[in-house]
Design a protein around this nucleic acid. Structure first.
Lengths: 364, 364
DNA sequence: CTGAAAGCGCTTACAG
DNA sequence: CTGAAAGCGCTTACAG
C-alpha cells in the first residue's frame, strides 16, 4: 500500500510538504498542494491512521462500554453515540460488559490499551469497579452515561432522571384502582436500579400505600429475571398477590409477559403491567404496554458532546434530562382494552410529565 | 503514562528483554521475566497498542459494516460478532451505513484508514459500491455477511438461505386459505431483498397462484416503507385487496402493523401478516407474529471465523445456513387466535423446515 | 538468554 | 513556503 513517501516522491516534494498538503496545513503553495493531491489520488493513497495516531497521540476513537448491547435501550444509545461521534470526527468502539464485572474490566483494559481518546461508560457499581475508578483518577477523559458510580469525582454524568416519571406511573396505577403494586427492580449495584426503586417506594408512601416487601422482586435487567420474579409474584397466596407489576426495564417486562401468559392471566384485566424504557414494539404488544420513555438518543448525543469537551480541553458538563410516562392500555383505560396504537410510529404518547429539564453544572 | 522504557529501567533490563518478557516470548530467563512483570505492575504499565500495531502491522481490530444498527437482526448479529471476535482476541469497530451508499463508503474509508485487520460487510449492491469492490480486489481480508455483491470474486459469503423458509411460509398461508398474498420487498439492490422476492414468486407459482403485480410493495427494510406500502395495499379496490401480507423484514412488519391498525383491521381475521426475521418480541405482539427465523448469532460467529481464517492465512470458507419458519397466530390457526406464546422465551417454534444445512466451499 | 539498533509511517518543531 | 531530521512507543532480526 502506498505510503506518504511514495506520494511525496511522485509529487516531487518532501514528505513534510506532502503531509502538510494532505492534512490541510495552510502554509503550502497551491502548486504543491495540487501536485500532492494528484499524486495521492493516482496512488490511491490512504493515510495510515496508526502511524498518525502514534505521532499525534490522538486516535480519534471513542470507547463506549455498555452493560448489555442486546438491551434495546443501549442499542439505541449506541446508535446515537456513533452518529454524534461521527459528526465530530470520531469512530466508536463498543465494548459489551455483558453485565459481568470482569467483562467491564476486560473491555476497559482493551480500550485503554488501544488509546481511545476518551471513554463513555455505563457502569455497575461493583466493588471491583476499581479499575474504572483508577481510570477516572488517571485523567483519561471519561463520561458516565445512564449509570454512574461513587468514588469518581469530577466525572460528568449524562443521564435521565426517572423519578418524576416513576411517580407519575405509580399515580397512574393508583388512579386506575391498583393497590397492590409490585416492582421488579434492577440490580442494587446500579444507580438506575436504586433510583427507580427509591422513586417507586416514595410514590407508594405519598399515596398512603404500605410498603410490602414480598411485592419487591429482585431482578437484574434481563428477561429471565423478569419471568422468574413475576412467576413468584403470581404464586403468592391470593390475598397478597399483586394487581400490578412495574418492571424496571424493558427486558424484564418481556420476561414478565412470558410469566403472565404462562399463568393464563390477561393484561390488564388479570394484572396490570408497566415498564421502564419504551421501545417501538411496545405499542404493538398485547396489550400495548405502558412505559416510561427516556430521551435515549439525546442522552447519547449529549454524552458524546460532553466527552468531546473533555478531550478537547473544554469544561465538560453533567446533563440530566427527564424521562416521561407513556400511558397505553396495559394498566387499564388509556386507549381502551384494545387500541393504544394509533398514529405515527412509536409516537403514541400521553405524557403525564412536565417539560424537559436540563441541569448543567460545570464539570471539573 | 509509563512506557516500556520505564519498565525496562526499573527491572534493570533492556527494552528488548522487557518487551519479550511482556509478550511471552520463550527465550527470557525466569528471573528477568519476574523482574519485568513486577516492574510493570508497580508502574501500572499498559502497552501502547498504537505503537505495537505500527510495528507489528496488525491492529487486532475487525471492522463490521451493517446497513442499519437499529434493525434487531443486525444488532444481534453485531453482538455475536463481537463475542466471537473477543474470543479470538479481536476488538470490533461497528460502522453503521444507515442504508446510504455514501455512508457505506465513509465507514469503509474510516475502517481502512484505521488499518483494521479485516472487514465484515453486509453491503447493498449499489453501482457506487466501487470502493467495496476495489477493497475486495486489494487483498484486504474481507468477508460478506448476510448480503453480498457481484464483482467481488473470492470473497467468502456467510449467510442464511431463506428460500426454503419463504416457500414454507407461502404454503402455510395457502393451507390456511389465503389466496391474495402480498409481499413487501426489500430493496432490489440487496441480495436478500431479491432472494426473498424470488422465492416468494416461485412459491406462488408452484401453488398455481397467479402473479399480481399490484400485490408487490416495494419497501426498503425500514418501518415507514412497511407502513406506506401496507396502507397502499389496504386501499386497493375490495376485490384485489390482499388477504395476507408478507413483510420481508421485521421493521417493515412493524410498519405494516401500524397501517393495519390504522385501517381498523384485525390480524389475522381481517388480514394475515408474516415477517422475515424473528425477534423475541414477536411472540408477544397482538397477535403473536408468524416469522422466518435466521440463525443470526451463528451467522455472526461463522463470519468472524471465516474472517479470522483469511487474516491468519488459512483458507476461508463460505457458509450457508438455513432459515426456518416459526408459525404463530398471525396467519390464522397455530396457537389459536390467542396464545402462540407459551413456554420459554422466544422459543415458541413450530418448524416447517428440515435440518440445518451447511455448505462449505473453499474460498480463494 | 540478552542488548543495541533499526524501523513501522507518519507529523512537526526547527531552520532556512 | 519548504526540507532534513527527530521522534511517537513499541518489536524483532541480528549479533553475541
Amino acid at each position: 500500500m502506498a505510503g506518504i513517501k511514495d506520494v511525496a516522491a511522485r509529487a516531487g516534494v518532501s514528505m513534510a510538504t506532502a503531509s502538510r498538503a494532505l492534512t490541510g496545513h495552510p502554509s503550502v503553495s497551491d502548486a504543491a498542494r495540487a501536485a500532492v493531491r494528484a499524486a495521492a489520488d493516482e496512488l490511491g493513497y490512504r493515510a495510515n491512521g496508526v502511524a498518525r495516531s502514534l505521532r499525534t497521540r490522538r486516535t480519534r476513537i471513542l470507547g463506549l462500554v455498555v452493560p448489555d448491547v442486546l438491551n434495546p435501550f443501549f442499542t439505541e444509545l449506541a446508535r446515537a453515540v456513533e452518529e454524534e461521534a461521527r459528526a465530530l470526527g470520531y469512530s466508536v468502539i463498543i465494548g459489551n460488559a455483558d453485565d459481568r464485572p470482569e467483562q467491564l474490566d476486560h473491555q476497559l483494559r482493551s480500550l485503554l490499551e488501544r488509546r481511545t481518546d476518551g471513554l463513555l461508560v455505563a457502569p455497575a457499581d461493583d466493588p471491583s469497579a476499581e479499575l474504572l475508578r483508577r481510570t477516572a483518577r488517571s485523567g483519561t477523559p471519561l463520561v458516565f452515561v445512564d449509570r454512574w458510580i461513587a468514588g469518581a469525582p469530577g466525572v460528568p454524568v449524562v443521564r435521565a432522571d426517572g423519578r418524576a416519571a416513576v411517580r407519575a406511573l405509580v399515580r397512574h396505577l393508583h388512579r386506575l384502582g391498583r393497590r397492590r403494586i409490585a416492582v421488579i427492580t434492577g440490580p442494587a449495584a446500579t444507580a438506575t436500579g436504586r433510583e427507580r426503586l427509591d422513586a417507586f417506594r416514595g410514590a407508594l408512601g405519598e399515596l398512603g400505600l404500605p410498603p410490602r416487601p414480598e411485592l419487591i422482586g429482585h431482578g437484574d435487567f434481563r428477561a429471565e429475571s423478569g419471568r422468574r420474579e413475576t412467576a413468584r409474584l403470581l404464586s403468592l397466596p391470593r390475598h397478597s398477590r399483586p394487581d400490578a407489576v412495574f418492571a424496571a426495564d424493558n427486558l424484564m417486562a418481556l420476561g414478565a409477559l412470558d410469566a403472565i401468559r404462562a399463568a393464563g392471566l390477561r393484561v390488564p384485566a388479570g394484572i396490570a403491567l408497566a415498564a421502564f424504557d419504551d421501545i417501538p414494539w411496545f405499542a404493538h404488544l398485547d396489550p400495548p404496554l405502558t412505559a416510561i420513555a427516556q430521551p435515549t438518543a439525546e442522552l447519547g448525543r449529549a454524552a458524546v458532546r460532553a466527552l468531546a469537551d473533555r478531550i478537547e480541553g473544554r469544561p465538560a458538563a453533567s446533563v440530566t434530562l427527564d424521562a416521561r410516562l407513556v400511558a397505553r392500555a396495559s394498566c387499564g383505560e388509556p386507549g381502551g382494552a384494545r387500541g393504544g396504537g394509533t398514529g405515527r410510529l412509536g409516537n403514541v404518547r400521553r405524557c403525564d410529565d412536565g417539560a424537559e429539564r436540563r441541569e448543567r453544572e460545570s464539570g471539573s
